[in-house]
Amino acid sequence: MASTTTTAAPAVEHGHGDGHAHHPRFQHHFVSMEQQFDSAKLGMWLFLITEILLFSGMFVAYTVYRVWHPEVFEVASEALNPFLGGLNTVVLLASSLTVALSIHFVQKDQIQKMNWMLLLTVLCAAIFMVVKYFEYTAKFEHGLYAGEAFHPHAGYEQFNIPYARQFFSIYFVMTGIHGVHVLIGMGMFTWLYTRGLRGHFSSEWYTPVELSGLYWHIVDLIWIFLFPLMYLI
């Protein structure tokens, strides 16, 4: 609230040449840069809340079926590879760190380091997707699909039990939608990287980096919940 009342920037439509040096990114319906930044950040937080709710719908489905058929879920989760899942957890955690560092560096105007960190983030995300690809194909080979195509065979017959299908459906839907988010993140960080190279960011203005960082932390956080629920218990 303070920012709406105390900032000194004049509320003029076309403020160019009125004596104040505006950042080129300044949008004139705002009163000040801080107000603009605060708004963007609040908006992003709200958006992330909707993301969490999107996933919580699926977590509810998971919980409900787990409560109804705990034994089936225990058996079915053995089909997942905790090593690969763990690897991916580590990879994602690392990428959260690189994102945090990229924000740290841009705040210090160390743009080159920021660029490196963004690139590393993209790399981690790519590793995550590659691992996921191998996990998925390993399941498909044995007929572990989401939905009607589900027919475990070739050494996986033990999963041919009622409600195992639900487990795999939920697994594929949740990790699939999560994977889509990772892909979107990869796109975003690649784009940020190219903008970083062109010198678009500085400690004065780095809103997109900060917001993408927030997004990435949420994607990471969701995985932190998915991993134990799916692979471990």
Partner: peptide, 19 residues
Amino acid sequence: PVIGITMVLLFLEKFLGIG
């Protein structure tokens, strides 16, 4: 968001039969 995911699950139900 909840109606969003409900609709996603509904058409996955319809086209994949996720059960």
